[in-house]
């Protein structure tokens, strides 16, 4: 019956778009400021991954090209895809949890908290104290601290009220942004660095970034996916979800923690990249419908592809200079989203 067909369709959508995304990632690996041919690129990747150099006779690639592909482009593309997937998936989760089409991964003050953490670390020169990872660590801590504060503010007698959460998120974001601005004013020498971080981007990505952030992000998305069915029921309202046997307070708490961890990990290594978490879930919902069991995986895959593509544009279009990728996500995403809105004239979500 049709119900079974739908499951097959979902699989097709997911694996189709996943292959597409991997293709996009490979393609973007060949594009860059330094001209390296497609064959050479894949040769380097294959030889590195399979460590077959000693068995087969791979041509000797220039060491500089190896560094560019393996140490610069590949980690950057992997991190961009993970961050894109994280933002899009969490955006989808939050739009469902808050039953609000305006929700994005930053509604609980994560971006403001991370910015405050990063700005403090940059302004107070924490790198010289704790080293290279000071800024991401401070951003991560700021993101979690702000989410936790918002969560505590949002707790009411009977559990967690999503509306109180939203409002607390808005208020705390404004408060943290004010402090960040104040720090920027006081430390004008670091202004450029702070603002650049806040616009978001992947320049300077290393394997260390990938190794710390990607496992958290992947684990977070997978665990959030476990709550897809609960999220579906929650779209019908808290009471309906409860009547369908969902332990609502526990589920909400778990979703909030997972979403906050995932977003914080993404933001810590990439800054606050806007718009991806808002438009990708909407775009995907227009294509596959509101069921979170397909919406979340599809959003993650599309978010990854979108982020890799925009980052590639960001690092090549003005090469050797770079545009912060957050500028481009909004620049391309905004008009495209408006086009979709106009095309689908019926009510949106």
């Amino acid at each position: 019956m049709e119900y079974r067909e739908r499951k097959t369709r979902w699989k097709l959508i997911f694996f189709g778009s996943l292959s597409g995304t991997i293709l996009v990632m490979l393609l973007c690996l060949t594009i860059g400021a330094v001209d390296i041919s497609v064959g050479e690129t894949f040769g380097i990747v294959v030889s590195k991954i399979l460590k077959l150099g000693s068995y087969f006779n791979f041509p000797q690639y220039p060491a500089s090209h190896e560094v560019i592909i393996w140490q610069v482009r590949l980690p950057r593309i992997i991190l961009a895809s993970a961050v894109g997937a994280a933002l899009a998936a969490v955006g989808g989760v939050f739009q469902g949890l808050f039953k609000n089409p305006m929700a994005d991964p930053y509604v609980l003050g994560i971006s403001a908290g991370a910015s405050l953490g990063a700005a403090s670390a940059i302004a107070f020169q924490l790198q010289s104290v704790i080293g290279f990872f000071a800024v991401p660590a401070a951003a991560f801590a700021g993101a979690l601290a702000s989410t936790f504060t918002v969560y505590c503010l949002g707790k009411v007698r009977t559990g967690v009220s999503v509306y109180t959460l939203l409002l607390a998120g808005v208020a705390l974001s404004a408060f943290f942004s004010a402090i960040t601005s104040f720090i920027i004013v006081l430390h004008s020498r670091e202004t450029h660095q702070i603002v650049f971080w806040m616009m978001g981007g992947f320049s300077g990505t290393t394997w260390l970034h990938v190794k710390t952030a990607v496992p958290v992000i992947c684990g977070g998305i997978l665990l959030l996916y476990c709550f897809a069915r609960e999220l579906n029921a929650m779209l019908f309202g808290d009471n309906t979800a409860r009547h369908l046997g969902i332990d609502l307070n526990r589920v909400k708490k778990a979703i909030l923690i997972l979403a906050a961890m995932t977003t914080a990990a993404a933001v810590a290594v990439s800054g606050t990249i806007g718009f991806v978490g808002l438009i990708i879930p909407h775009m995907v919902r227009l294509m596959v419908g509101p069921d979170h069991r397909i919406l979340l995986p599809a959003a993650a895959v599309f978010g990854a592809a979108f982020m890799v593509l925009t980052d590639t544009v960001a690092r090549t279009i003005l090469a050797p200079a770079e545009i912060p990728v957050g500028v481009l996500t909004a620049f391309f995403g905004g008009p495209f989203f408006i086009y979709l809105l106009r095309k689908k004239k019926s009510e949106f979500i």
Partner: peptide, 29 residues
């Protein structure tokens, strides 16, 4: 909650929904 939902079902007063699930998906929930 899960056990309670197998014993007791509730039809609330306000049934408005904003998300475009199909009727069959809704009932299957």
């Amino acid at each position: 909650p899960k056990k309670l939902a197998r014993q007791m079902a509730v039809v609330p007063q306000d049934t408005a929904v904003n998300f475009a699930f199909t009727v069959f998906e809704t009932v299957l929930m």
